[in-house]
Every structure is written in structure tokens, then in C-alpha cells.
Computed example of a mutant assay.
Amino acid sequence: MHTLAIVILNYNGKKYLEKFLPSVLKHSHGYPVYVADNDSTDDSVDFLHQYYPEIRQIHFPLNHGYAQGYNEALKEVNATYYCLLNSDIEVTEGWLTPLLDLIESNPVIAAVQPKILDYNRQNYFEHAGGVGGFLDVLGYPFTRGRLFDTREEDKGQYNTPPIRCFWASGACMIVRSEAYHQLGGFDGDFFAHMEEIDLCWRFHLAGLEVWASGDSVVYHVGGGTLDYQSPRKTFLNFHNSLAMLYKNLPDNRLAGVIFLRLVLDGVAGIYFLVSGFPKHCWAVARAHFAFYARWAGWRRKRRALAPLRENGTVIPLYGRSILRAYFLQGIKTYSALPPDDSLFS
């Protein structure tokens, strides 16, 4: 068994493999690198065979999406820790050492992430990760470095010792393989987006921890497979957010939060419509229709998680609303948020 294996999930990402694989191989410290291909229709596979025969390839006959794609790929990888790495990430010298040191320091740590900066604006945090992710009382995600669409400039403000957080970014995370498989891995029904937050929620329910280290730095292009402006991305974000909340929230908060999100998502849909983005408005509506259409399936998943939810573990949600802070109080940075014990800092 390897100590660590780096696993890159690819779908029509030849241009990113060409650009970023050299940095991964250069700075991977000899750990094996896998590329799992989600039935790409470009020539990614031929490119890897020709130029990177040392990379271990896993091929799927269909596109499983991010979530189930990794579930299937990791069945083929034998390692104590998995590094899940997007194909559109440039890694830096020494990036693995702080992350491995951190996750190996305590068996209760299930996942860790680095500082994730924007490849195209390298002094700014990237949307997908910052330096550790959090979730507010209504289920809105944010990071050290980003609130909604406002990304901070990296001025070293989060160059602190490693911190506990709620979720680690699926763009680049190291996860303990035993915990990953014991808790069922990603939810394949999410396809893509929010699956890492859902998994990290289960880690917390099981009494495990998630951490972030600013001593490791990577650069993320973002939107490499699905563009940030895509209505499909809007659909997945709204749909999977509902599914995650329904699966994981405690009974005494479930109805209230789901009702509020129904209202707030309706407001978001109207905003898209009046802003000239009708396809995104329809994506929000479709997200709700799709969620309620599969209510029975989500209910079964919620029931399956009942033993974890009932074990008394305190879930570290940020106890305030970042929606209120951002839009009503004008707070645009993580460090300006009102303090809360769940922020671990």
C-alpha cells in the first residue's frame, strides 16, 4: 500500500493535462499519480499514453461526473491517503509536505486542504477553496478568502498555523482513505458540486475533523470542466445544496431551514431573471423540481444517516447568516465576520 496516491479526474481536459501535469510530476515526491478518465471525447487518453506512460490510467465507459467518478476511481487505488486534485491546478514546490504532516499528526483528521489561489490572478484567492471552507446557519458555504463572489487579495492575512474548518475543497484535498470508504465516499447523485461539503459534514457527524494549511499553496484555474457562467452549474449548486441540507441537518432545524432556502432560492431566481439571465432563473426552478421529484430517495439517505446525526456530535456550522452579513451589513471579507466559536480561530 502506498502512503499517498495523487488522483486526477479528467473529462476532456487535455489542455490542462498538458499544462499542469509537469508541475504535478515534478513536485509529487515520487508518489504515484493516477488519471481517471470520465469517457473523454478529446484525445486526453492518447496524449497520456504517448507522453506520460508512467502515469497510471483508469478508464470509464461513461461520464460518471466528479462525485461518482472519484468513487469508482478510488476503488482501484491502494493508498493510506488520497490526494484528489483537479486537472486545472498548478502545484508548487513542497506543496505535499505540510498537508501530509498535518493529516498524519492526528488520526481524527479525515481531510486537509492547502491555500488555493487563482491561477489567473495569483495574488487573489480562488473561488473554490481559499484557506478552508465553512458553512453558515442556512447552509451557505464560504471560505477564508471568499464570501459569495467577493474574493480577497492574498496579503498573508491567513498565513496562520493550520486551522480546523468545516470543509476542504474538492479542487485539492488529501483525504484519509479509511474514513472516505467507511462513510460512503461522495454522494454519486450529486454528480458534481457540493459533494465535498456533504462528505465533510459526514466526517463531522462521525466525530472526525477537517483542517486547512496555508503553508501549502496551489493555483487553480477554476471552471475547467463546467464554466462558472453555465446554467448547468447553477442547477447543480442549488439542487445539491438542498440535498446536502436535507440529508444532514438535525430534525429540529430541518423544516425551518428548508423553508427559508425555498424562499431565498426564489429570490435568487427572480434576481437572475431581472438581471437578464433567464436560463439561470429556470435552472434554480429546475433544481427544486428535481429535488422534490426524488424526495423518496433523499429521505432514504437521510434515514441511513440517522445513527450518525443522533450520536450527539456538535456540528460546527457558523452560527450566523453570511447572507445577512454580506448583503445587509456590507461585510465582504472573512476576517470582518462577527466571531463565532465554530470558526475555530
Rank of each mutant, 00 (worst) to 15 (best):
residue 209 E to V: 06
residue 314 V to C: 12
residue 41 T to S: 13
residue 227 D to G: 13
residue 325 A to M: 10
residue 156 G to F: 05
residue 37 D to G: 04
residue 158 Y to K: 02
residue 13 G to K: 07
residue 113 Q to H: 07
residue 174 I to G: 05
residue 29 H to I: 03
residue 177 S to D: 08
residue 295 W to R: 12
residue 185 G to E: 00
residue 159 N to I: 00
residue 215 D to K: 15
residue 153 E to M: 09
residue 250 P to L: 07
residue 233 K to F: 04
residue 317 L to P: 03
residue 143 T to S: 14
residue 10 N to E: 15
residue 7 V to I: 14
residue 143 T to I: 07
residue 154 D to E: 10
residue 313 T to W: 02
residue 209 E to R: 14
residue 225 T to N: 09
residue 231 P to A: 07
residue 6 I to V: 15
residue 85 L to C: 01
residue 295 W to Q: 08
residue 196 E to W: 08
residue 274 V to T: 11
residue 198 D to E: 12
residue 192 A to N: 08
residue 204 H to V: 13
residue 16 Y to M: 01
residue 197 I to H: 01
residue 220 H to N: 13
residue 281 C to W: 15
residue 249 L to H: 06
residue 63 N to F: 06
residue 224 G to H: 00
residue 24 V to M: 04
residue 234 T to D: 03
residue 55 I to L: 02
residue 336 A to Q: 14
residue 250 P to Y: 08
residue 169 S to I: 05
residue 181 H to E: 08
residue 108 V to Y: 09
residue 301 K to D: 15
residue 59 H to D: 09
residue 312 G to W: 09
residue 118 D to L: 08
residue 187 D to V: 11
residue 104 E to R: 11
residue 266 G to T: 11
residue 191 F to R: 02
residue 3 T to Y: 00
residue 164 R to C: 09
residue 211 W to A: 02
residue 85 L to S: 02
residue 226 L to W: 03
residue 36 A to C: 13
residue 35 V to K: 05
residue 8 I to N: 03
residue 296 A to Q: 13
residue 161 P to Q: 13
residue 276 G to F: 14
residue 239 H to V: 00
residue 68 Q to F: 00
residue 60 F to M: 14
residue 127 H to V: 11
residue 17 L to M: 15
residue 203 F to S: 05
residue 43 D to K: 10
residue 196 E to C: 04
residue 239 H to F: 09
residue 21 L to T: 10
residue 32 P to A: 12
residue 274 V to W: 07
residue 251 D to A: 12
residue 256 G to M: 07
residue 267 V to G: 07
residue 188 G to I: 00
residue 274 V to P: 00
residue 174 I to Q: 10
residue 145 G to W: 12
residue 263 V to N: 01
residue 136 D to M: 04
residue 160 T to C: 10
residue 212 A to H: 04
residue 238 F to D: 01
residue 7 V to P: 04
residue 99 L to R: 02
residue 284 V to D: 06
